[in-house]
């Protein structure tokens, strides 16, 4: 990425223009044409610098429930547990962490009941558990402009 690419990426990370000709608008801001903006964004997308360009929705506003889950998985079961847990589209993040509860993942589904069903199913399929279910009771901060966590 050259400095013009970086300028574009910085701009569209903060907020993509919601207007009839967004790429022309971006071009006006940095002094290049619409066609060049389009070519450059295609390039950064192809090189993988931009992972996705679109909307991040708030699951609660769409009527979905979300939670953070943790489970202790013995080393010999880890590979299979990862495979089972990751197979759900409801799981967006899954990490190994340094604790007795060594697998931490998020689960998003249309209802709390559906989340319970999914967790029960995971326990049976992977032979692990109990999975502890820790839905947020109070939210103090979500820094949305951080690209580190894109849930």
């Amino acid at each position: 990425m050259d400095s013009t690419d970086k300028k574009i990426v910085t701009l569209i990370q903060a907020g993509f223009p919601v207007s009839a000709r967004p790429y022309a608008e971006i071009g006006d801001k940095i002094g290049i044409g619409e066609d060049e903006v389009i070519e450059r964004i295609k390039g950064t997308k192809e090189s993988g610098e931009i992972r996705r360009m679109g909307a991040s929705f708030d699951s609660r506003k769409l009527g979905y429930s979300s939670t953070l889950c943790a489970v202790h998985v013995p080393p010999e079961k880890l590979e299979e547990a990862v495979e089972v847990v990751n197979s759900y589209i409801n799981v967006t993040h899954n990490y190994e962490r340094n604790h007795h509860y060594n697998m931490w993942f998020t689960c998003i589904a249309p209802s709390r009941e559906r989340i319970s069903e999914i967790l029960n199913e995971m326990e049976k399929r992977a032979g692990i558990g109990p999975i502890i279910n820790l839905p947020a009771e109070r939210l103090f901060k979500i820094q949305v402009d951080l690209p580190v966590i894109d849930g």
């Binding site: 990426v9 569209i12 992972r51 991040s56 708030d58 894109d150």
Partner: peptide
């Protein structure tokens, strides 16, 4: 949807960490 928070962020998600 941006104004009422249904969309949290609209734009490019970049691969590298901050």
């Amino acid at each position: 949807w941006l104004a009422d928070g249904t969309i949290r962020r609209f734009g490019a998600m970049v691969r590298h960490q901050r």
